[in-house]
Every structure is written in C-alpha cells, then in structure tokens.
Design a protein around this nucleic acid. Structure first.
Lengths: 199, 199
DNA sequence: GTCTATATCAGGATAGAC
DNA sequence: GTCTATCCTGATATAGAC
C-alpha cells in the first residue's frame, strides 16, 4: 500500500534531522532522502511546521519502544526487588547512549528540541511535560532501589541524573565523549546518588 | 571615535544571539539592533561567518572577566585552603547561573555552540578544547578541596559536574528550571562529589 | 496520491554614492 | 566609514497535469 509514503517520509525526516538538526531540515533535502517530491510532503503534512510536528511525534513514539517508558512486558507487572530495580535504572539511563541509528536520531532530536525551546516558547510546554515525565520515571526507579528515601530527595536525585544525562548526551553526539566513558560516568553517578539516598 | 562601531555591532550581536540563537542571527536584524546598515557589518567583518567568529570571540573574552577563568586578582596568587577552595569551586560553577544579560548571553552562546558542533565538525576542535580546559579547572579546584584524591577520580568528578552544569543550563534557559532550584541542585552535586572523593 | 513545474519570499551579499 | 539601493541565491510553498 503506497499510503505508507507517509511513514517513508517520516523515517527520512528522522535521518535528515540526525544529520542536519531540526533547524537544518530542508524540505528539498527531505524529499530527496525519502525519494519523493516536495509537493507530496506538503500534501501529507501541510507545511514545514506540520512536517516537523509529525516527525517529532514519530520519533518520540518510536523511542518509547526502545526506552520501555511505561512499556510493560505484558506478563507480570510485579514490582521488582532492589537488585533488579537498580539494574533497571541503569539500563534505562544508559539506553540513551547507544550507537544505533534510531537511538542517535532520538537523542539528537531531543537535544535539538531542548535547544530550540530556548528561543521558541511554543515548544516549551511539550518539552517540560516530557522532561517531567522522565524525571518522575527515574525518581520512581530510584524509589524502588531505596524505598525509604523521601519523595523530595528522590526527585532531586532524578533531576541531577537526568540533567547529567542531557549534558553528556550533547558531548557524546558532538564527538567529545566516547560512549564507554559516558557509560562509566553515568554508572558512577547512579552509585553516588543511590548511596546518598541511603543516608 | 566612531570606529567603535565595531564594538557596538558585536554587543548588538550578543543580544541578538541571546534572543534568537547563533543559528537565528540575521544580518538585517543585527543591523537594526546595532543601529547601522548591513553594509557596514560586511565592511567590518567580511561576511556572516566572520561576524559570528568575532562575536563568539567577543563574548568569550567578556565572559572571562566574569568567570575569572585564570583571572588572577593581581595581588597574591597563594593557593587557598580547603574551605576557601570549596567556596571558590561552588562560586565558579554557580557563576553560569545568573540573571544578568551578559551571563545569559554567554550561556546561550555556549549552548548554541555545543548544539551546533553536533552538525558542524569544524566547530568541534575549539569546543573540545574549551570543554577540556573547563574540566581541568574544575578538577583543579576539587583537588584543592580534597588534596589526597587521585587525578583520575578528580577528572571524573569534574566531568560529571560540568556535564550536569551543561544539562541544567539548557533547562534553565528554556524556562524549565528556576535559578534557585538550579543552584540547590548544583550545590548538592558538589557535596556528593566532594564526599565521594574523600573515600 | 504523486509528480513537474513555478511563484514567492527571505536573507546574504555587493555596488557605488557620499 | 557609512549609507541606500539592489542583486542573487536558496528555500518554502502552490498550481495544475496525470
């Protein structure tokens, strides 16, 4: 079915964004990348802004499958013990640092979004929501590792960890920080925060 | 002397960048902001790239005066004790979070630069250098607080702290994180790292 | 639904007068 | 050194055929 040209276009957009950034997305480039005409893109997505919106949504949805954000493996939703929880926490944080095209595209897109939000207030709402959700998720995982910690302490730790993640992500993407090193830094940060929460 | 139109232009550029980002800098906008014609800008700085280069240099120089990066107050360069050192460390890190136009312009510019470096490899060299210098400076300050810590441990801590700073900076600039909260998070992070280094 | 033009517009850059 | 006027390119968006 050829109507999935839509999908083809969005996949192409994700790749183009990974190469040139949100602000470097040209409709012509995207058309070539997706193997269609620019007119078709306008037909499906109305204008550049619309194309962008759909692409970000597409990337975000796709990311959820990888990050497992509230994924649920169908089977048993039983809360894991502290050991598994810590594993899960590290896993969740490190997932953003992988040498996979999809992950890279996802990281770049979010980075671009965060950077764009500084100048485009319209973007702030969605971004803030997403950030808060992420912080909450991480705080939740931390809470499972250290069930006795207070909510504010958990939130603060989560804010630091996710903040660190965002900073390191940019370094990684700009080639200033090797993946393995990023992993090591994150793991140690997790260790510090967990230890901190046990006091 | 009217040749300080150059300076006027660069100051205007800093303001424009703070509003629209490096990538949103339009020669026309800049001309209006600085109260000159576009032609004059080209006369002084050759082209857009040149204008950008000079502006970044200008902002960077101006920032050094605030950050005191290797500043030196002239008088006595004697190494401060652990108490002062810790003060100095916090001070140095928190200086990037202030509601002053110059500081804001500086933070935004560096953020933009980091984001741009992902897509423009030419920028990576300078950026990596600047980042390394910063990490080294912070590691240095940490070393004065905890003289017994090993160099690798100091570096790792500095990498985490500066990484966190970069992440939080973006959040602050996009209005998602109040200054006071940013300060609190950074202070606690410093505390955690220092404690970590004493073991 | 999809393509081939093509209109339109914004922004970088230059010429030439003063 | 500085301005006014203008050119030129590159990018968004639309018209109309198939």
């Amino acid at each position: 079915m050829a109507t999935d040209r839509r999908r083809t276009i969005l996949e192409g957009a994700a790749r183009v964004i990974a190469r040139h950034g949100v602000r470097g997305l040209r409709m012509e480039t995207l058309a070539t990348e997706a193997g269609v005409s620019t007119a078709l893109i306008y037909y499906h997505f109305k204008d550049r802004a619309g194309t962008l919106r759909h692409t970000l949504e597409f990337i975000s949805d796709r990311a959820d499958r990888y990050t497992g954000d509230g994924g649920g493996e169908g089977g048993g939703g039983s809360t894991p013990g502290p050991h598994d929880a810590r594993q899960e926490l590290e896993q969740s944080l490190l997932l953003e640092f992988q040498e996979l095209p999809e992950v890279r595209e996802n990281s770049i897109t979010w980075g671009e979004l965060r950077a764009s939000a500084i100048f485009e207030p319209e973007l702030r709402g969605d971004l803030a929501r997403a950030t808060l959700t992420r912080i909450h998720d991480v705080a939740d995982l931390l809470g499972r590792v250290r069930p006795t910690a207070t909510a504010p302490a958990l939130t603060a730790s989560a804010e630091r960890l996710t903040g660190l993640l965002e900073g390191l992500s940019t370094r990684w993407l700009s080639g200033a920080l090797p993946l393995s090193h990023a992993h090591a830094l994150v793991r140690e940060a997790v260790a510090l925060e967990i230890e901190h929460l046990s006091r």
